[in-house]
Each structure stands twice: as structure tokens, then as C-alpha cells.
């Protein structure tokens, strides 16, 4: 489609949208170097790289980062299993309740996070369960299921049925067909859905605030840090670390899903 040239008004609007998205990112970048530690003024009074060194001496940051990575990884894994199961069950057949089911799995992401958050918190306290990493993971996995489901179900619907029939006709069992035909077909969809799930979990603060107890995930650490008057720019450095480490996986996931689409 790239043979056509876009009208200039469209180009302008697209560039405008992109600038709007990235201007604050540049601001974050700039203020990672400011010499002020409690108030930000523009233009910054001076520039320094001290905050990059400061973060190395903050074990609480690294602990929070590792906890967030762990929570996101486990929540994503659970979401991949549950989301794929639902997709396998629903992609070909309509059955009693299948419409309500698709509504049900969208709900955790479509209802405001605070609703899920206080709902989970009140049942955690009613049931007298201790807050732990697992209560965080349960909350996260629940709203991650839908991203995996959507990617997998879309791919399954595009997978030709004759492929499955051929596999079965050639004597493969359900399991063999799943393992050698279905799974390779949905692998990149799983990856794309999983990446999105990971991203959602990694940056989630609203539900986490209610399900976390004493554990501090990265967003909670950032929130604490931002509301404190000292070492403000450290949070900008933290954000930059997150951006840099996620750039490559996002791009790879995009490439993999594109290859199979074309």
C-alpha cells in the first residue's frame, strides 16, 4: 500500500499525534539529568548524571524491579494457559453461555481497575487471607487473560480447518494435532498476547495498590518515590531503564506477529 502517497493533512495529523505521544517522554529524559532534587522547574537550572549513579545504590529499586518482573512473568504464564484454554473451547463452536463467557473475560479489563481492586481487597480481608505476592498475581492474571485470549482466538479463526482435519485423517491424536499443528500456528499469537499481558501487569498500580500488602512492585515504588521530596530524578532514571529494556522485546514481538500475518 505504500505506493500511494498520503495527503499532507493526514501526514500532518499523524506527525502531530506522534509528537504529542513523545513530548512527555522527552521531558522525562531531560529531567533525569536535572540538578534539582525536589522541585522541577523549566528550564532546568543545571545538568548532572549523578542520578544514574544514585540508582545503583538503591537496593529498594532493584528489589521492586525484580518483584515486578516476577509478578508479571507468573501472571502472564497463568494468563497464557487460561486464555488459550478458553480460546480453544470457543473459537469454533457456539454453545450455551459462550456469549456471556466472552463478556465475562473482557470485564476485568473493561471495568475500572478500582472496582476489581476493592472487590479483591474486600474478599481477601473477608476470607482472612494474608496479602502476599500471590494476591498481587491473582489480580494481575485475571485482567491479563483477555489479551492472550483475543490474540489466540483471532489466530485460531484464521487457521484453516482443513489443516486440522488432514492431521486427524492422517491418524494424529488430538494431542498430536495440538502439539504439531495448532501450537506452531498460534505460537506468535501467544507471544504477542503474552507481551501485552506482561506489559499490563508490569505497569499496573491501581489494582496492585489494593492487593499488595507490604510488597512493593515497581509502580508502587515509583509512587512512593514521587510523593517524597527527595531524589525525585531517580524515578526518571527508573523510567528510562524500563523504556530501554522493553524496546527490544516490543519490537521483536511486533516483527514476529507481522511475519505470520503477511
Amino acid at each position: 500500500m505504500s505506493t500511494e502517497r498520503a495527503p499532507w493533512s493526514l501526514r500532518l495529523a499523524a506527525i502531530g499525534g506522534l509528537l504529542f505521544l513523545h513530548f512527555p517522554i522527552l521531558v522525562i529524559l531531560l529531567y533525569a539529568f536535572t540538578t534539582e532534587e525536589n522541585a522541577f522547574t523549566f528550564p532546568p537550572p543545571g545538568l548532572t548524571t549523578q542520578w544514574f549513579g544514585a540508582i545503583l545504590e538503591r537496593p529498594d529499586f532493584w528489589r521492586a524491579l525484580i518483584l515486578s518482573l516476577q509478578v508479571a512473568a507468573i501472571a502472564t504464564l497463568i494468563a497464557i494457559v487460561l486464555g488459550t484454554l478458553i480460546a480453544l473451547a470457543t473459537y469454533r463452536r457456539k454453545f450455551f453461555g459462550s456469549d456471556s463467557l466472552s463478556l465475562l473475560i473482557v470485564l476485568p479489563i473493561a471495568l475500572p481497575g478500582i472496582v476489581s481492586g476493592i472487590a479483591l481487597r474486600s474478599s481477601i480481608s473477608v476470607l482472612d487471607i494474608d496479602f502476599s505476592v500471590w494476591t498481587i498475581i491473582i489480580g494481575h492474571a485475571t485482567f491479563c487473560i483477555v489479551t492472550v485470549y483475543n490474540n489466540v482466538v483471532a489466530r485460531l479463526r484464521r487457521t484453516s480447518n482443513s489443516l486440522l482435519e488432514a492431521s486427524m485423517d492422517l491418524g494424529a491424536t488430538n494431542w498430536q494435532t495440538f502439539r504439531h499443528v495448532v501450537l506452531p500456528n498460534i505460537a506468535t499469537a501467544l507471544l504477542a498476547g503474552g507481551m501485552l499481558a506482561f506489559a499490563l501487569s508490569f505497569d499496573e498500580i491501581i489494582v496492585t495498590t489494593f492487593t499488595a500488602g507490604q510488597d512493593r512492585t515497581l509502580p508502587i515504588w515509583i509512587f512512593d518515590q514521587l510523593t517524597r521530596p527527595r531524589d525525585r530524578p531517580v524515578t526518571n532514571v527508573a523510567a528510562i531503564i524500563v523504556i530501554l529494556t522493553t524496546l527490544v522485546p516490543i519490537y521483536l514481538a511486533y516483527r514476529w506477529t507481522q511475519e505470520t500475518r503477511d
Partner: peptide, 16 residues
Amino acid sequence: GVMVPLWSSYLVRVYA
């Protein structure tokens, strides 16, 4: 370009 802002911390962007 669309995903990077989505992935950068929500809180840090709000404070920006």
C-alpha cells in the same frame, strides 16, 4: 512509537 509511551511508567508520565 506508539508502544513505547504505553510501556513507560504511567506514573512517571503523569508527573512529567
